[in-house]
Amino acid sequence: MNLALRDIRHRAGRFVLTAVGLSLLLGVVMSMIGIYRGLVDDALALARAPAAELWVVEGGTRGPFAEASRIPRDTRAAIARLDGVAAAGAVTYQSLQVSVDGRPLRLFVVGHELDRPGGPTAIADGRAIERSHFELVVDRRTGLKLGERLRLGTDTFTVVGRTKGQVDSAGNAVAYMTLSDAQKLQFTLEGAAARNQAARGESPNRQQVNAVVARVKPGHDPDELAQSVRRWKHLAALSQDQQESLLLTSVVEKARRQIGLFTAVLLAVSTVIIALIIYTMTMDKMREIATLKLIGAPDRTIAGLILQQSLALGGLAFVTGTTLVTLAAGVFPRRVLILPADVAALSLVVLTICVVASLFGVRYALRVDPARALGG
């Protein structure tokens, strides 16, 4: 006879409601972990999109994602001539706020050269950009459909393709256009600002880009190529691994600490709640426990009763909470990425919490006087 199971059946309603409440708390913990994983994956998605091994940026900067970077467009030709470089492409990056059917839409626009590194590596719907002007590839998250027209700056673009999962570190959908269109959008002023620039005899400089990305030939070390580029005092260079490490340390580091601290607090609260619940459940059956001790039940039987109930409560809450978060992941405004390794790790944490929380109830139960079973 399993005493823990019989006691749970006797108080099934309260046990289930308690488990549901605890599952919501553990679901928040899992969602925080998933948000962090999604944050990291989103931040790296943009850097990994060109499938490049070398990033060349303005000297003295760590751009283009960590800080501003502007270099001459013809830098691409110089990088392409380096021994070990298979292909190179110039790119620009900029954020835009537009209105689509009355709703605001935040875009991270990438300008790239056709048939060179810098554009999307995979198109989920439609096709890649083929014309030199006024074509756009956007991520599905924008909600834009193939063939839809979008006004950006002074020009109207047509959506010819869509990607999947292409966002920046802030979760904004990425849009790709040709480099010439992006330079016009980024460096050309409009309205009164343009007239003021013309009156001063200045012209927009469209021969600047934010970075040059390059792919390396097999057998060549990207770090060595980056070191070679750094000898040019007006340029800085990072390998792909360095770029990703920089993104994680400079762009998402504070978010990682914040989410980690919040998760730790939630786990501590979960421990206290489980301990309180188990302690209360133990107090409710003090006479039954005293009776067990009176008839000679060993301490391990009583400890096992409390521990099994604690594990059952934590296990049911964990499974329910994880299931709810997995089903609701698509509703979150930021991507929630649930990894099997994180689920396994959290299950071990919950197991440890349940064992630790049950110790309070076990300690109290083992100190009960068997004579209490004969009391009124």
Results as ranks from 00 to 15, higher is better:
V20S: 01
A275Y: 10
D125G: 01
V229G: 02
A329C: 05
L305Y: 09
L366V: 04
H234I: 10
L26Y: 10
L107P: 01
P50W: 09
T121E: 13
L185F: 12
I302Q: 04
G201Q: 03
Q207P: 00
R76F: 06
T188Y: 09
A128F: 14
A371K: 12
L144S: 06
D83R: 11
R335N: 08
E224Y: 08
V57R: 08
R149I: 01
G161Q: 10
E202V: 03
R372K: 07
R76N: 01
H234F: 13
D221Q: 07
L185A: 13
L246S: 07
Q183T: 07
T18W: 02
L316Q: 04
D284L: 13
V29P: 02
A357W: 06
S23N: 05
S270Y: 10
L5K: 02
D83K: 09
T320Q: 05
A47I: 05
R215K: 03
A43D: 09
V355N: 02
T301A: 15
L292P: 00
E53H: 10
R334M: 06
G153Y: 10
L150S: 08
V110R: 02
V355R: 00
Q308A: 15
Y176K: 02
A175W: 08
V343N: 04
L105I: 05
I295S: 05
R116L: 13
R6T: 06
E148I: 04
I278T: 10
P222T: 05
M281C: 00
G161I: 10
R206G: 14
A371R: 13
Q309I: 03
V216K: 03
T92V: 04
H133R: 14
T291A: 08
D42H: 04
D125H: 09
Q243V: 06
Q240A: 13
V362P: 02
D241K: 11
S99Q: 13
I123A: 05
E288V: 14
T271C: 14
I295M: 07
A198C: 08
A237Y: 03
R141S: 14
S180K: 07
G376K: 12
E224Q: 15
I123L: 03
I295N: 03
V331C: 01
A290P: 03
A66Q: 09
I302L: 01
L150C: 09
G21L: 12
D284R: 12
V251A: 10
D101F: 14
G201I: 02
L311Q: 06
K164F: 11
A297C: 05
G361K: 08
F318P: 01
S250F: 08
A317V: 11
V331H: 05
G375D: 15
I289A: 02
G34H: 10
G27H: 01
H220Y: 15
A199M: 11
L337S: 12
F332V: 09
L339A: 13
L144V: 05
R140L: 14
G304M: 08
M286A: 14
S99D: 13
I289E: 03
G153P: 02
V325P: 00
M32E: 13
A236I: 04
E244Q: 11
D101P: 00
L311G: 10
E130C: 07
V349K: 06
Q208I: 01
A173K: 00
L266I: 09
A371D: 14
G314Y: 11
R62G: 04
S245E: 15
L366Y: 07
R372G: 04
T271A: 15
G27Y: 06
F318M: 13
A90R: 01
P120W: 09
A19S: 13
A290V: 08
